[in-house]
């Protein structure tokens, strides 16, 4: 079983990564096992849970549905790379303020999804926020507080606010 490595060059959390990856390797496994970025989680094999959601070129993606090889040439951002050091993005801070984290397993994926939403629509209403969570299962039930957190970001953004 001669396994051909696939050469890839990608940016992960702002740092260039040049390496060779096994052709079958999923992006989520590359991030977790090869790069040690275990903030990105795995919850299913079938694409439903969204625990593995990251940003690829700023767009939310389920990293269990992508090969590491496919990330060649792309910019990947995981939860570890959202903020500098111990700082928090406004969204992370809002998750904290509004208790949008319980066990925290779904949190990295939800942060990636909601980051994408806010980039597209800086002032989403509650129904839009809920729909944008369709790809993220939280079994602890933080959804309502995620709505509050995203609304806080919208309201605090310059020029934002008001439904």
């Amino acid at each position: 079983m001669a396994e051909q490595g696939v050469p890839v060059t990608l940016t992960v959390n702002g740092r260039e990564v040049r390496t060779s990856v096994p052709p079958y390797l999923l992006l989520v496994d590359f991030l977790r096992d090869t790069l040690g970025l275990t903030g990105t989680k795995v919850g299913c094999e079938t694409g439903q849970c969204g625990a593995c959601t990251i940003l690829v070129d700023g767009i939310s993606a389920k990293s269990c549905a992508m090969l590491a090889a496919q990330a060649d040439g792309h910019q990947v951002t995981t939860v570890e790379g959202m903020a500098q050091g111990s700082a928090m993005t406004p969204l992370q801070a809002a998750f904290w303020d509004k208790h949008a984290v319980q066990c925290g397993y779904c949190t990295p994926g939800l942060l990636a999804s909601m980051t994408d939403l806010l980039q597209r629509n800086p002032d989403p209403n509650a129904a839009e926020i809920r729909r944008w969570m369709d790809g993220n299962i939280c079994r602890c039930g933080v959804y309502q507080n995620v709505v509050r957190a995203v609304r806080q970001v919208a309201e605090q953004a310059p020029g934002g606010g008001g439904e």
Binding site: G50, S60, K62, S113, D116, L117, D134, G135
Partner: peptide, 9 residues
């Protein structure tokens, strides 16, 4: 279709 992440890719 599906959810946002699916539609994205």
């Amino acid at each position: 279709v599906g959810d946002p992440q699916v539609r994205n890719w």
